[in-house]
Simulated scan of single mutants.
Amino acid sequence: MASASAFGRCGRVALLGAMLVLAACGLPRSGPTKREVMSGAVENGGSTNIVMVNDAIARAASYAPTYGFSRSFQAAGQVGADEIRPGDTLGLMIWENVDDGLLTSMGASSTQLQQLQVDSAGFIFVPYAGRIRAAGNSPDALRQIITNRLASQTPDPQVTVTRLAGDGATVSVMGKVGGQGVYPIERPTRTLSSMLAKAGGVAIAPEVAVVTVKRGGETGKVWLTDLYSNPRNDIALRPGDVILVEEDSRNFTALGALGGQTMVPLGNEQINALEGIAMVGGLSSNLADPTGVFVLREEPASVASKVLGRSVQSTQRVAYILDLTQPNGLFVARDFLLRDGDTVYVTEAPFVQWHKTISALTGSLSQAASLENAVK
């Protein structure tokens, strides 16, 4: 009996030791503790700058990248509605003041030349007038050029020039619009907003719609709401522009002791840390440590220099700590703006791990007692 009792005591000690090891490193949890995150600080040989957020830090980190068009986009003038361009189709009518003219048939005083397409170099060919540069001229200017060319060969010629089609001055509209396609730049559609209307309007919610314009090697983009609220964003279109409408993909990730763990779209609004937490159900009242709310971010050098108080030359990995228990902690969190790619991570309260440890040990001791009774 003594040996059995000794075995039971030894078994309990062994099981207790095993459970202590399990409680120390094997219990389930939602992520690293506050102390474990801070152990990766640069001061400890890690690669993360740990920054406690206060009012000054919130202001320094409030940089928010914005969309908008460069000066070259905004300074571009509107395409003249009557300006002839390569690819346009023209119609000519020529009257001659003689019975037997150069171009007219017997008994006719005029001739009509239809479907004259301006070639890629901007030229057309007119019989007896030769190869004439049409691109860059208005129909009236081209009329005068052709008249002058024919005047040396037939007396007092009269010429009219009509722009039949404007296929040369076009833009491409793609993405989330009512009707994708290639559209001519005409008098009513010489600006970005009017061309979007011509394409059937935007087919997604305006607050998440981003409009991108590609012109040669340059690209600009703007929120749809900013396009209509700021006239400077309603840029003049140029031939060959590509317009793309797409849904904004900016988001932040919420992890840890929160009401939900997910990726959250930012839209075109400025969302602060408090709003971001509320969007996923708030802090978990049973798990969260309100002193350990982290915002993890890759900070550009210009902003990192202000936040860290020293000059840096490259992007820095920063873990911002928001302590909601401080007297002004909620105000600081309200003033701290989230950005695309941020990770909001809320650590578990120390009590949670302690509770899990006690629960694990209590359950294990009960199992050990049952085992001892079975041995007896």
Rank of each mutant, 00 (worst) to 15 (best):
A129V: 06
Q78V: 00
G107A: 10
S30D: 14
T325D: 10
D323A: 06
V13R: 06
M279H: 03
A319K: 05
R317N: 06
D100A: 08
V318L: 10
V126Q: 03
V173F: 03
R143G: 15
A129R: 01
V177Q: 03
N272P: 00
N328S: 14
D156C: 07
A23Q: 01
V303S: 00
L244H: 11
L92M: 11
R334T: 14
A14D: 01
M106P: 08
A81D: 07
R9K: 09
P139S: 04
T48W: 14
R310T: 09
G181F: 10
V171C: 01
V295R: 01
V42D: 01
A108H: 05
R12D: 04
V375A: 13
V344E: 07
G260V: 00
S311I: 11
V98C: 06
Q114P: 08
V21H: 03
A301L: 06
S172C: 01
F7N: 11
A273G: 05
P28V: 14
V182H: 03
G130I: 10
G166W: 10
G31K: 13
L196G: 03
A374E: 03
Q114R: 14
D140V: 12
I132C: 09
A14N: 01
A2V: 04
L337M: 10
E43L: 15
K198I: 00
A129C: 12
G8V: 08
P157H: 00
D140Q: 15
T48K: 07
S109D: 06
V318C: 02
T104H: 02
S172T: 12
T170P: 05
R310F: 09
L324P: 07
A273T: 12
A141R: 13
L237W: 09
G309D: 06
A197N: 12
A288P: 02
V346K: 01
V177W: 02
I243D: 04
R250M: 02
A75Y: 07
G220A: 05
V173K: 02
L244I: 11
N286H: 12
L283E: 01
E299Q: 08
K176G: 05
G68T: 07
G122D: 03
G77S: 13
L296S: 02
A349L: 12
G216N: 05
G341H: 01
S105K: 13
K214C: 03
L113P: 06
Y63C: 02
A135H: 07
S305F: 10
G329K: 12
P139Q: 03
H355Q: 14
S194W: 12
V375L: 15
A199H: 07
T262F: 15
L365C: 10
